[in-house]
Design a protein around this nucleic acid. Structure first.
Lengths: 135, 135
DNA sequence: ATTTTTAAATCGATGTCGTCCATTTGTAAT
DNA sequence: ATTACAAATGGACGACATCGATTTAAAAAT
């Protein structure tokens, strides 16, 4: 990891489909050199993958919510986490300090979907929901 | 927006550097056809860009925190939002329901950086911090 | 100080990829 | 049936990614 690697990451963060040739021009290195560096960044696990920035509203998302889930004594945090983190609506799921809590960020088409979601996760704990108004 | 577009988005979400030719094979369409569809998805603003999934820990991030910022009466939510959302440490910044609050997700190299950040945003409101333990 | 070793870059070659244009196909409307 | 329009195909061409061989450069060892 040197300054050139950082520059590569910065450029790919801005546009993950940027060509290696173009990146090469910016850092004054040949395309194969960039290719090898990127491959190494992947192998080291620094680059985990390449993804999309989407306009969720245009895909029908009308409700986004943070849900703090206070886990029941009867349930374990780990199982709750594993079950919830992979649900399609969930964008982030983090264990946080304080009481045994999960902080869940999830996107929904409508409020009905949100309610269904809340009912589903209620088996693991008590949800406290905040709707996102502006992002 | 049809099923093919959805499939394209799904494939690019998994790997934004996937070649148009490969996507074409999956949906049984030619590469130029995929190229045009992707371009349209960009022009419609559905695809906002292509980005990186990074392992932040391997880049020196040791502290991640959610910070609920209860905005002062003296400060306006809008100015606070605009100032804070663009700080380098900030990953997400959302206005949420309830009191005049911002929910900030931010990453830090160490706790010292977190403290500096909290001091900086204290001019806009009262921060309430939860550290992320597991993601 | 010289040699050896290693990592990393360049160069040239090759196959793949993305994009352009002209043409074709398919669908909906009159 | 004719027209009109949107979208896909196919071929061509320039750009791109990747491979192997070679060169360069810096660090390690003698």
């Amino acid at each position: 990891m040197d300054d050139i690697d950082l520059k590569i990451l910065e450029m790919l963060r801005k546009n993950a489909r940027e060509s290696l040739a173009n990146i090469g021009k910016s850092v004054e290195l040949s395309a194969p050199a960039i290719g090898k560096r990127v491959k190494q960044l992947e192998e080291k696990g620094i680059i985990l993958g390449y993804s999309l920035k989407l306009n969720h509203e245009k895909l029908g998302i009308r409700t986004k919510a943070y849900i703090i889930l206070k886990i029941h004594q009867s349930s374990t945090l780990k199982t709750a986490y594993n079950q919830i983190a992979h649900l399609t609506e969930v964008q982030r799921c983090d264990r946080i300090t304080g009481d045994d809590c999960l902080c869940i960020l999830a996107f929904f088409k409508d409020n009905k979907e949100l309610i269904t979601f809340l009912e589903r996760i209620s088996q693991y704990g008590v949800p406290n929901t905040s709707i996102l108004l502006e992002s």
